[in-house]
Amino acid sequence: MERDPIDHKGLIQEAYRIEGITAAECRSIFLDWALSLPPEMDQQQAITTLLDRYGLEYQAHPMTQVLQDGLTVLEQPRRRGGWRARSRD
């Protein structure tokens, strides 16, 4: 059996199979999944693929909302902090 390169541990797939799973549990699973992604994999594309795979069938599932939230966070511009943010170029 070939492993899924986007969900190689099967974490997201299993989360969708767990009845009664909470949003907090889904966030924990999502974090574990995100930390296990290979560095060369585009996180935004991986989340989009997972939403394409599960989002329509499981619209009310808390993992779908967690994935959507993760995608939203990745799309937001990041603020530069520290001395770079305060220095004038």
Rank of each mutant, 00 (worst) to 15 (best):
M1Q: 08
E2G: 09
E2T: 10
D4P: 05
D4K: 06
P5V: 14
I6K: 00
I6F: 07
D7I: 09
D7W: 07
K9A: 12
K9T: 09
L11V: 03
L11T: 01
I12P: 00
I12Y: 00
Q13N: 08
Q13E: 11
E14L: 11
E14W: 08
Y16R: 05
R17K: 08
R17S: 10
I18M: 06
I18T: 09
E19T: 05
E19F: 05
E19P: 01
G20C: 09
I21Y: 07
I21Q: 09
E25W: 03
C26N: 01
R27M: 02
R27W: 03
S28W: 07
S28G: 12
F30S: 05
L31I: 14
D32A: 11
L35P: 03
L35S: 13
L35H: 09
L37V: 03
P38G: 13
P38H: 14
P39L: 11
E40H: 10
E40M: 08
E40N: 09
E40I: 08
E40A: 14
M41K: 07
M41E: 08
D42M: 01
Q43S: 14
Q44S: 14
Q44N: 13
T48W: 02
T48M: 06
L50V: 00
L51T: 02
L51H: 01
D52V: 05
D52H: 10
R53I: 06
Y54R: 08
G55F: 03
E57A: 14
Y58R: 06
Y58N: 10
A60S: 13
A60E: 07
P62E: 04
M63E: 00
T64D: 04
V66E: 04
Q68S: 13
Q68A: 11
Q68T: 09
Q68L: 14
D69A: 06
D69K: 01
D69L: 03
D69V: 02
G70F: 00
L71S: 13
T72W: 07
T72H: 13
V73G: 03
L74I: 05
L74Y: 02
L74P: 01
Q76Y: 09
R79L: 15
R80N: 10
G81P: 04
G81E: 12
W83N: 10
W83I: 15
W83H: 13
A85G: 15
A85V: 12
R86C: 08
R86L: 14
S87I: 15
R88Q: 15
R88I: 15
R88C: 13
